[in-house]
Amino acid sequence: MVKLDDIKKECKSILEEGKVKYIVGYKRNNNYYMSIPAFIEKIEETDQLIWDPTCVYNLVRFLRDEKLRKERQKTPDTRPIGVIVKGCDSRAINVLLQEKFIKRENVYIIGVACEKSGVIEKKKLRKKFNEKNIKQIEFGKDNNFIITTEKGKTTISAEEILAERCIECNNNTPVIYDVLLGEKVERSLSEHFRSLEKFESISTEEKWNFWKKELDKCIRCYACRSVCPMCYCDECIADSISLAVKPDTTAEEKAQKIRWVEKSPVSSENFSYHLIRALHLAGRCIDCGECERVCPVDIPLRYLNKKMEKEASEQFGYTAGLDPEKPALVSDFKDDDPQDFII
């Protein structure tokens, strides 16, 4: 089991040496059991750091913000920033490296192995406990979580409240890191595409009804886009205002700007938006589950990305974020890619 003291010690030492500008980690939220992201700049602040099953966030997202901030500064601090990553998050860094969005020397990766457990899913937790009573959730022994409520401590098997993505996870150990904390352990509970099984047996019409019901709920708040570590395009296709309007831009040019997706949250536009997003994340999504977590209307967005991941893996033998040197899924091909469907 990863000891919190090890994480603190490591963070202290790299801050002392001045290796990093700051460290992005997790800290406790006041009066709430979920953790929040922490930005640690001073050595004494490292005591705030925590490591528990509520560290669900993918902190790799902040590398994008850091890059943009650096570009705006005249004399930026070129030291790397430290980031605490789980197995899934480390693959996100790999994808960003593969796409040459960030440079390896700009990030100091503190890998934390999930070992045999993972992080919780709030939805599952809510079914079993009254959220208001929960004070704290900790890792216990033998793949258990210890939940502290007002009444006392309860031990619960991790699988009961473990996030679906953690159950399906194959990378409980970070694949890229400067320092690794925790042990490399094989896990027994991985069934990689378990959540997609229920779609295999249902008919086309049932699939449509399911997605129609789910995607019609979308209010187009773009929270999924804002939280995604891979959504870093300067111009998103979903923003129809993204035409650079200069003094000499004519009205005709503005009118002729192609709008692939309209802003209105109606069925067809929601489908366009989510399908385009799923396709844009094909071979890039590392299944950190953040889009689904932040969705205010609980659309199961993970299924779309998981489906793409499944096809990439089964048809092309490609898994996102394992090797930053390899070409990306859609910028590569093999002579014997499957083509049975082509007439």
Binding site: K207, W208, L279, M308, A312, L329, D337, F341, I343
Partner: peptide, 26 residues
Amino acid sequence: YYARRRITLVKELLEFIGIEPERFQM
């Protein structure tokens, strides 16, 4: 070759959300 990969993904995704597979062909 690039098209083949990309279109495979589009086709699978369209089928997944419940569009009849006959409607999209390559």
